[in-house]
């Protein structure tokens, strides 16, 4: 028996919004430690890794490990039927071929359940090595989303250059070129407005704007985003989900042809 409850459907809606543009389907691996999903986008350029800890749920029970392959478009249709302040419970029997989403209104007067067929997905799991990154940048998630959106107008790719002084995002194309420089902040009132750079070695890397923009769909989940970079390895874009876990996107860099 598997049962996971969140007192507020908003978080689950936001999580799905953060992955459904990149992935058509995904396998939710459930164990007593929580729920994990790892999947590559169709073109194998990026990888999504979602971790939701069992202690972050309002109720969590998982008697046996189970993997639930879900069509994320179908899941989105179902979650659209939940009000933001509904309690959502995800339920499945052991070895079942369906999963049930139950939504309960605050006053308990409306209870709906939606059963969805599970899929057998033959997804490859990749081992992600522990890496000490040359540069780790923490910045407001809204600011990162804004920069990705702005620079995508000028080029298909953005160059991220990180030094001790700051981080610079650049794009150039037919129209011209754009550069956005962010300096590390000192003495900001609010932690969520801070820009923090931890640098061992400076890095310059090129990434596809399309994917960066897809990752920023996670912005409503977190005030801050963390970018981890080293030369010639995938960028990690991490959004923490308060008290529940995190979503990490890995993006292969563009390389000199």
């Amino acid at each position: 028996m598997f049962e996971a409850r969140l007192n507020n459907a908003t978080t689950l809606k936001k999580i799905l919004d953060a992955i459904k543009d990149l992935l058509n389907e995904g396998t939710f691996d459930c164990s007593d430690s929580g729920i994990q999903l790892q999947a590559m986008d169709n073109s194998h350029v990026s990888l999504v890794s979602l971790t939701l800890r069992s202690d972050g749920f309002d109720k969590f029970r998982c008697d046996r490990n189970l993997s639930m392959g879900m069509n994320l478009g179908s899941m989105a249709k179902i979650l659209k039927c939940a009000n933001n302040d509904d309690t959502v419970t995800i339920k499945a029997q052991d070895n079942a071929d369906t999963v049930t989403f139950m939504f309960e209104s605050q006053n308990q007067e409306k209870v709906s359940d939606y059963e969805m067929k599970l899929m057998n997905l033959d997804q490859e799991h990749l081992g992600i090595p522990e890496t000490d990154y040359s540069c780790v940048v923490r910045m407001p998630a809204m600011e990162f989303a804004r920069i990705c959106r702005d620079l995508a107008q000028f080029s298909e790719s953005v160059v991220i250059c990180c030094t001790k002084e700051g981080v610079k995002f650049s794009a150039s194309g037919d129209v011209g070129s754009a550069n956005v420089k962010l300096a590390q902040t000192f003495n900001v009132d609010k932690e969520e407005e801070a820009i923090v750079i931890e640098m061992q070695e400076p890095v310059v890397l090129t990434f596809a704007c399309r994917y960066l923009n897809a990752f920023t769909k996670a912005t409503p989940l977190s005030n801050q985003v963390q970018l981890s970079m080293s030369a010639d390895v995938p960028l990690v874009v991490e959004y923490r989900i308060a008290e529940l876990g995190h979503i990490r996107y890995y993006l292969a860099p563009k390389i000199e042809d």
Binding site: V45, G127, P129, V233, I255, D257
Partner: peptide, 14 residues
């Protein structure tokens, strides 16, 4: 000119 890398070139299959 740059070309897009594939994520599977960086992480090994489990």
């Amino acid at each position: 000119k740059t070309k897009q890398g594939n994520i599977m070139n960086f992480f090994k299959k489990k």
